[in-house]
Design a protein around this nucleic acid. Sequence first.
DNA 1: TTGTAGGCGTTATCAG
DNA 2: CTGATAACGCCTACAA
Lengths: 346, 346
Amino acid sequence: MKKPTTIHDIAKMANVSSATVSRVLSNSSYPVSKELKERIQQIAKESNYIPNMLGKQLKKNSSNTIGVIIPSIVNPFYSSVIFGIEEVARQNNFTVIVCNSLQDPALEDEYLRTIMEKQVKGLIISSISKDKSQLTQLMKLGLNVIAIDQKIDEDNVNQIEFDYHKAGYLATKHLQEKGHERIGYVTSKLDRPSRRSIHQGYMSAMKDAGLKPLVVESQTEEVYNAITEFDTGKQLTQKLLEHSPQPTAIFACNDMMAFGVINELSQRDIQVPEQVSVMGFDGIDVGQMIHPPLTTIKQPDYEMGKMACKMLLDMMQGDDSPMFDVMLQPKLLERKSIRDIRGEGK
Amino acid sequence: MKKPTTIHDIAKMANVSSATVSRVLSNSSYPVSKELKERIQQIAKESNYIPNMLGKQLKKNSSNTIGVIIPSIVNPFYSSVIFGIEEVARQNNFTVIVCNSLQDPALEDEYLRTIMEKQVKGLIISSISKDKSQLTQLMKLGLNVIAIDQKIDEDNVNQIEFDYHKAGYLATKHLQEKGHERIGYVTSKLDRPSRRSIHQGYMSAMKDAGLKPLVVESQTEEVYNAITEFDTGKQLTQKLLEHSPQPTAIFACNDMMAFGVINELSQRDIQVPEQVSVMGFDGIDVGQMIHPPLTTIKQPDYEMGKMACKMLLDMMQGDDSPMFDVMLQPKLLERKSIRDIRGEGK
DNA sequence: TTGTAGGCGTTATCAG
DNA sequence: CTGATAACGCCTACAA
């Protein structure tokens, strides 16, 4: 395991100065005679030269790296986002550092620190912590920030959000259009802006249609966990069914929960969608593999990742054309878990 | 956006040399008087000093970063692995760079290159490319490598694998113990060692029990994609059902495919598990949310990530205690998709 | 077109 | 205990 070759080594071998080698090997526009250029490239190849980015980056004071802080990569929603980010990053010769904050503000801060130390100049974050003081301070030191999913109300932070309100509205509206009037909404704790927005979307749609809302909210705070969501879905369904008259449709705040809803209904021999319709939220793949395939709302997660990364790179290039926040629009994935009950006695 | 403070700035403010500042701020064991130490720490804090790792790392020639190359982070199996890796990495002040190779050897090589350039000294890889020449060359240059999931037959590469063979055996055996004799195996293309091992496990178990194997293999090569697996499951089930007498149990090479199997059976009004039992493979969360909950084989993915990272860090510390390859053992998750048919006329 | 030399921020060696 | 000073690998005025 000998020392790696540097531009100086190559300079010696070629009997030129290291400056010239640098100019050739870094594809500088600086003029170098063709003959020399080729010789140097040749030698570099033969000696398996690998540039040391630390040197380069120290000099340039930037690291061709972007940081991504999200609650948990295990949440398929976020892994799609990252997938999009990573794709764009790679195309631009950037590298991605992934950080799972686990919804823990302390961890989030710790990661922010490491990111700064590593001279990362761009960050995509779905932040959960209330206190944005560290973040704003770091921005003053030159950190470019794009907030995804969870809004950050600070100047110079560009947002790229989902239109949760519209999504909630859209889902509810769709159920109404299929003739449903008693539509229940089951949701995990309304302790995050995104969840509150969906809820509000539901409320607006009900109000606009002159219908009485029926909401059941879970009180347990939890870190993302598929099974928990599922169980919550079951429990909330139980509660919901205590109401009389029973709803003809149930809208769940995420797909896992919708699975729970369907499961609970089946266990009580209530047919979906014959007796009760179910609307999900998220559009995860398995939704189309269950029975009945789940009608749901799809948020463009992968696209969010790509767009976030593009915006971030623009921002870092000091592209001073003004930036705008983006609100990504939801899409209805119509499958088979909702029944059209128009024109029926019910 | 002014220049960041360096140890020199702090040195000036404290009227000491930058050497002393370095010794204090890097927690060196080098003796510094208590009084000075405190003063420097104080000033560092007041001036919001953030160390520049590029400088440090250039000097030390290492980057406190590990690289992870996997086919795709969208595959929940790999996102669990990464989750485990990231956790251990963080605890040891390491940072993780994630690379999606998309099963493309060219991309894999590209990533390897960037990783080396960034002076990353440790790599965890699930490699898909046949040609390991670049990898071995990089190892000579000091790259520490742990291979996960996909075996790499090179010296100095430590393996941490799943026991796919045993897993396949275990699954088949379980079906047999429930009285099944005509057990079909549906699998995606047997073009990877892992898949071949499961298949062989199945074959051994059938042979040991004196039963005739019944295998249907997909011929399409594909990148990981949940829906594709599902559809493949459906198609292969169709084929399988053409055989007579029909199997009483179907074992699928992954859970998504098992979902497809179940779906196809339901569509043909074949009850699971009453008429045909189904065994999955992977243990993804949603398996317990479908109907019937899927009996399956769980590979310890998260643990694999943790272990891989621990081993890698040991390796990088030049811990010269000999390393051993690890074979992680599968576990049967018994749920409701398999029926006990012992003592029946069938 | 090429070379020289200084510096990016940090640590380590060697004197004081 | 503290301080100069020389690296680490690369880039870039500036000079030739």
